[in-house]
Design a protein around this nucleic acid. Structure first.
Ligand SMILES: [Mn+2]
Ligand SMILES: [Mn+2]
Ligand SMILES: [Zn+2]
Ligand SMILES: [Zn+2]
Lengths: 164, 164
DNA sequence: ACTTTATTTTGGAATAATTGTAAATTTCCT
DNA sequence: AGGAAATTTACAATTATTCCAAAATAAAGT
């Protein structure tokens, strides 16, 4: 009841307990870098790149390695805890929201927005099925275009990349 | 009528006239490397990589540069003559079939198969439209899984990559 | 056909995302 | 605590793609 004694559990900015729970839920052992990464993903549902995750965590966790972020992402994807998006040909984006949904990739700001799936229900898409003899394990849908925000700014600013 | 005199026009393996026509149709000027590349694409609707196009043409056209293949692909994509697929995170694949359709990416053989689009008609998808305030210019749909062929071979051979 | 100009191609170097590796660290079990 | 197994780390290596400046080709003008 008295949580003043355990500062680490209650006073942290983001909830690392929830991150640890999620890791356990997907059957991966809980370690410091994994919790940090998962915590970041749970607080920023914005399809970050590996670089963004790395450089966001780096200040508070200087020994974190880029390789660990890559390895962790691949591992989490294999356990179904994240989805790796290869929409932007420059680098991969991580989606912590594993409910099947579609995306809009804005060719102006390079951000990725969520949209509902078309033609398949999210429930249907979350299980494997057969199509034309092929075993389907994941459904990916995305659009390329210009996002709402960028359309209004089109004439104004020149063009802002969300990286760097 | 007598085409024995003009060997180059009639006797060639693939039809470079059709390739040149297609280039003109998309409003790009006709040059030797472009014709060679377009001809290759029209004869191999198999989502080749830049490397595959390059190394296929290289023997007959030794001065061809990889850079030219890259530049040409990007240019053709801007003119709507091809679609660039960022499905395989290792490299991009070129699709000469610009009719909107879906794909299956086989995680075993890394080949990309064509499938019909779901939830959107190809006609609908071939024009820009608005969704949730966003301007949609391209519709991309693909599945990840194991293709029909690979399922039957699953126990037999270990795993064959289609590159190299 | 010949010159001039603009466009395209070329090859080699540069960039940058991702992967490989071997040593160091942490975790987990007894 | 002690030791095996798993994980992380730092850095090197790889590799797809881009950059660039010179060479070649195509187009336009005389
Ligand atoms: Mn998403
Ligand atoms: Mn296709
Ligand atoms: Zn945008
Ligand atoms: Zn296959």
């Amino acid at each position: 009841m008295n949580n003043l004694t355990s500062r680490s559990t209650a006073a942290g900015q983001g909830c690392r307990a929830a991150a640890a729970d999620r890791l356990r839920h997907f059957g991966v052992s809980v370690t410091r870098p994994r919790v940090a990464i998962m915590e970041y993903l749970m607080e920023h549902h914005v399809h970050p790149t590996v670089e963004q995750v790395y450089s966001a965590l780096s200040p508070e966790y200087p020994s974190l390695s880029r390789t660990t972020v890559y390895n962790t992402m691949k591992m989490l994807a294999e356990h179904g805890a994240v989805t790796l998006l290869t929409i932007d040909d420059r680098n991969l984006n991580i989606d912590e929201n594993t409910t099947p949904h579609a995306h809009l990739y804005c060719t102006r700001c390079h951000r990725i927005h969520d949209l509902p799936l078309q033609g398949v229900s999210p429930l249907q898409a979350s299980y494997a099925f057969t199509l034309d003899g092929h075993l389907i394990q994941q459904v990916h849908q995305y659009y390329k275009g210009v996002c709402r925000e960028c359309q209004t700014d089109l004439n104004k600013e020149p063009l802002l990349t969300n990286k760097q």
